[in-house]
Nucleic acid binder design. Structure first.
Lengths: 225, 225
DNA sequence: ATGGTCGCCTTACGGTGTAAGGACACATCC
DNA sequence: GGATGTGTCCTTACACCGTAAGGCGACCAT
């Protein structure tokens, strides 16, 4: 019995990993000290030797996700700044979607995660190399960052549950109160036969991304004169 | 003693109001059933007669904020769609800033708050009247919405605490690791004598807003041919 | 009077973060 | 060897959280 290989020792990294996995699978509500302990076959209190408290643990989870975004992009070098940045934003979004809990948790952080510096440093480098000046690069990362974060948070996705018999009466009431919205829903549903929902969010994301990139390119050209 | 005017009766509206005030003043962590009860001079359990549970309460808080945004804009009618929409976005941002807890809580909602329909219906109306088609209007509200929400969540605001002696050694290390970032910080700090911080977020917000509006205008003109 | 409904309260339970301190293995020095 | 840390993990305990279950008085209709 004493010979059974000793349990792998606890580590900050292993703890954060377990926490992220828990959050991915069961949502942030499932991320409790005791649950993480169970996951690693330890008691909850043992975690406190590697993590200051739950706030620090969550900050660590955030940093892990941002680091993922940063690392995923180190190899991306496209023909021009636009393609490079576009690729990195799409990558960032993919990662955010694989950690659905992340955007709202990131929004609650009061300090920038350290990995954000890595990420933004690279991004600014790309932009400067393409002829952006510092002010424009600064604005670009704000625009892109806020938008990548904001887009996971859709405020408007009617009936995300699915198509449960629209309920004729309620529908008519809605049509009276929100005529433009219903019109739009009609049009879009008709147009998008193949899409998953009226809001095919990936398409929406890429549209807005294009919007922002176009705008930045125009400002860059103004600089170039 | 029996004559003391009876306590004002509890109401869903009064409860939501107290909850929002608590969140504004002390953050979302302070919003507990018992704290809301105290605020209204009742016991925690009394709230459950007007609110299903805490999830519903939070949904109510979100709806209240979105309704605030919707109502704040009903009177806005500027010369053109661009000015109108711009005004409404700025208003929305002002309101988000006055409820700092809101964006991250909104991001956690799984159902659209009812007031979002009111808000978006109006917005779509404005856009359609200006010559947008339904598809473009749809994309516009996604772009604007996600961006207004995302922008309150800044991932990148170095040293939000303030200017505590940058610490020469740490600074030098940073400069080695994040050269572009430090360069940028230098430039921006120098340029922005009057601003509150390197990231004068209001300016950043308006810049990005302009970017998005420009992009939408260009697409609209393509439609008009 | 009687029974019902409404608004509020009391009590109680399981789950949460974490403070305080104990148990035990191992390294280091005498 | 023994003594003495030192670092890792566990036990116990507590205050606070959301909320299930049920009680109690005020009102209102019959």
């Amino acid at each position: 019995m004493s010979d059974e290989h000793a349990k792998e020792p606890l580590t900050r990294a292993r703890i954060l990993d377990a926490a992220v996995r828990l959050a991915d699978e069961s949502g942030m509500r499932a991320v409790t000290m005791r649950a993480i302990g169970d996951e690693l076959d330890r008691e909850a209190m043992s975690l406190y030797h590697h993590v200051a408290d739950k706030k620090a643990l969550i900050a660590g989870m955030v940093d892990a996700v941002v680091a993922e975004v940063a690392e995923a992009g180190t190899a991306v070098h496209r023909a021009n700044w636009r393609a490079t940045v576009r690729e990195r934003c799409l990558e960032a979004r993919r990662i955010m979607l694989s950690h659905p809990w992340a955007p709202s948790v990131i929004a609650q952080q009061e300090e920038s995660p350290a990995s954000a510096f890595v990420l933004y440093n690279e991004l600014v480098g790309t932009l400067l190399a393409a002829g952006f000046d510092h002010a424009l690069a600064h604005r670009a990362i704000h625009a892109l960052g806020s938008f990548v974060l904001g887009f996971s948070n859709e405020l408007f996705d009617p009936a995300p549950g699915g198509d449960e018999e629209p309920d004729e009466a309620a529908m008519r009431a809605m049509a009276a109160t929100f005529p433009h919205l219903l019109e739009m829903a009609d049009m879009e549903l008709h147009a998008a036969e193949g899409a998953l929902s009226m809001c095919d969010t990936q398409a929406e994301f890429e549209f807005t991304l294009g919007l922002v990139l176009d705008g930045l390119e125009a400002r860059r050209l103004e600089l170039a004169g």
